[in-house]
Write a protein that binds this DNA or RNA. Structure first.
Lengths: 120, 120
DNA sequence: TCTAATTATTACCTTTTGGTGGGTAGCGCA
DNA sequence: TGCGCTACCCACCAAAAGGTAATAATTAGA
């Protein structure tokens, strides 16, 4: 079986939080567990397909846990695992740095907006 | 003109350090300025095209600076700008978290290897 | 005159990622 | 009977990201 080789730690991290959606999802889950629909509303640009797909991948990496309530209509929610919590500090810093980056770019006259800050 | 809209800070950060290569390049530049060929050797999997393309984008975002020496054969090096340095702490944490992630997965029996740790 | 050295560009192709629109399950309620 | 609610899956398509290989530019030195 082929051994997967990384050359530097950040490669492995990015495999987990990289891509267009994962870090955004995780930043939301940082505060509290959220239901599927709740996440969808918090991230209006995401499609349902992407949302569940990314959640599945985060679950496989043991970063989020999925909790199904036995109800009809169905109720499912997602939360950071204990291991996922170990990313919390980094996620926060990524948010804050991004906010600052947006401020700078605005100050420089770029036409960009930020809808909500870290702790939605 | 269309105003670019972000919904959360991390989106902007990931636009800058996301993708397969940028964070790796930045982790290397964290320690000292490096020449093109030196970076290429440090990141053996990257192609020349990707290397220069990513460096151009980082330059455009004001994260790295490009310094051309008037010599033949050409000599060019890249370094973090002052603003780029503001990412240094985050980059370091991303490296360390990834190293730990790899350790865990190894301990769990996954066939993976890490070639070199943070401070190459 | 020919080659080595270093950085960078271009055209072309493959892979990965993301988006759309449809459909399912199962219970409650008008 | 038929619709709404919630989560989610699938087939198909479009766009973005990344990979390969060939090529340029320039000058020292064999």
């Amino acid at each position: 079986m082929p051994t997967k080789t990384y050359h530097i730690g950040v490669e492995a991290t990015m495999e987990i939080i990289g891509g267009k959606w994962k870090s955004i999802i995780l930043c939301h889950l940082r505060h509290h567990a959220m239901r599927t629909g709740e996440l969808a509303r918090a991230i209006p640009q995401i499609s349902q397909k992407m949302l569940t797909q990314q959640l599945r991948e985060l679950e496989a990496a043991n970063i989020v846990s999925r909790h199904v309530y036995k109800q009809v209509p169905p109720r499912v929610d997602y939360a950071l695992t204990d291991y996922g919590e170990s990313l919390s500090g980094i996620l926060h810093e990524l948010c804050v740095w991004g906010e600052d980056n947006i401020d700078r770019r605005q100050a420089a006259g770029e036409p960009i907006t930020l809808m909500s800050r870290d702790d939605v």
